[in-house]
Design a protein around this nucleic acid. Sequence first.
DNA 1: GTTACACATTTTTTT
DNA 2: AATGTGTAAC
Length: 645
Amino acid sequence: MDLNAEQTRAAEFAGDDVLVLAGAGTGKTSTIVARVVHLTQSGVDPRRILLLTFTRRAAREMRHRLTQQIGSSAKTVPTGTFHNFCLQYLRRWPDLFECGSLTIIDRDDQLQLMKLARANVVGKDAAFPKSAELANYYSYARNTNRPVAEYLAEFTDHDEDGIKRISAVLQDYTKRKHECRYFDYDDILHLFARQLHRSRIVREKMQSRYDHILVDEMQDTNPLQWLILDGMRDPAKLFCVGDDAQSIYAFRGADFRNVHSFTERVSGAQVLKLEENYRSTQEILDLSNWLLDQSALGYDKHLRAARGPGIKPVMVELDGDFEEADWVASDLMQRHEEGDPWRDHMILTRSAWAARSVEAALIENDIPYRFIGGTQLLQSAHVKDLLSLLRVIDNPADQLAWMRYLTLWPRIGEKTAATTISKLLGMPNIKVISEFLTDQYRTNPRLAESIAECLTCWDRPSDVIGAATDKMTPLLEKKYDDWDRRSKDFKLLRRLALKHQSVGEFLETYTLDPITESEASNEDVDDLVTLITVHSAKGTEAPVCYLIGVQPGNYPHVRSIGDDEKEEEERRVLYVAMTRAQNELFLTGTRRSHGAYVPHHNRFYQSGGSNTQPYFLSDVPPELVQSDLDIDTDPFDAPITSFRG
DNA sequence: GTTACACATTTTTTT
DNA sequence: AATGTGTAAC
């Protein structure tokens, strides 16, 4: 592996703790991998090096690169996300962490439960924050490790009474969560961190477990995660890599102080920098640098391209969503015909929703793709229906799953289901419940039969899914008019389940690390165009990148307008997006900007006029980009001119 | 008192 | 696509 002087210095750092400030494309992953290699070669036990990443994809990439370097011993280096890592220990030592069996719930379930709590505490009140907002408050407060009331008073406009009512809802939510033996994402980190700081035994065990802790994407860690790192370090040494210009998770409580205040918090820590960019051409970096320079915040970042000059980024303005989608699709097809593999292309989108027209164009033109950040397999309604059956067997206290499963059947609605659930909650095990249900619903014998059928093969996840599918198909066929399309997912699910030991583990894996539908179905194809949200794209790269929806209203996103900090984060989102490109960068957008109503600001923004909607690229220097407007402008009925003259 | 169904509304980013 | 809402039907 070839490293430059900066990278080598970081990889072979011999002091205690270090923060590596690594700009986009400066070989961050290579450096971390080289660090692991260096450590193992100097005699450190690979099992005593902990590698924490932000996403499962980053973890996979890291392990892959590591395997290339040191072979199979790469597998012995513990690598994973914070959530993964913490959960592993909660499972290993349930007594130490004072937690028994638990079901991890995803955001959907969290919202569902919050809705119940909200209805219970405040009833119908359209003016009261919706469940999604309440869940955000709750999560944000916990990730920043502060009391909910304090957070609400400081960061929201709610009055004292409002704060009281919100706190009451959140309390009710917490109660319900315990009742159902649920754990939400934040609980995993929270419980781990709490015990780490509260219990001496846990702390001593964890502190003696690792010699080196390597953290990727440090700028995206939040105070709760910092508590975890702080509790485990010393004597373990920290090696944290990050870039404040790429911090795009403030909405989730990410705290840039974890980077800026590193040396104050960790005494004796050193700071190293990686500044040479190996990914992109200078033209791509010029535009990216310009974007950061426009900010009032001094990022003081000027990426230099080790590769030298190339092609200028191209800005394309189209008339509408469909034209934009068509343009991207036809450009892709042209390149493919000229011999470029699909996999060299990445389409980046601000939101999953904004990608729908491009996705449609890809499907229509038979362009193979995977959508990262798109609809997740386990989140689609029909899959949730099926899994609700597995969930109630796995955890009979899972009330949300019971509600979903019971109301699937004819003549059972919310009320009937609720009555049934309150009765079955006290029952000792699923067998007793199953008998009770047989008795209760004589008109729906299949309801209980399905449970019994799944129980006969409970130790073989794939067969369980097969059994559940068989029993529930008649129901679901009726419920969904596009059943043919949906039923394919169940085959896929069965295949995925083959890789798992138990149903519980199967459910948990995909709750914590959701895979997208297209990702799962294209498992074995590898020449694909990647369609991806900017947030998911961090850490990845591609020779040719298309940023779609680059237009007012998206950058900055309308919902961030009026809040300086949020707007700045939007700038960084665009910056992250641009710096993914290696050779060619296209920025496409639609010219139709209707303006937008911004609730936060209580004001209508429009293009032109006195209150213009802010847009980062409204005055991009012309010399930095190429405007590609010479799309085929021939009128459709222009007669053909013969080449014979 | 419930359930079923038609119709309207709404979409930032993620572990 | 998946929720929320209102009304007819059971």
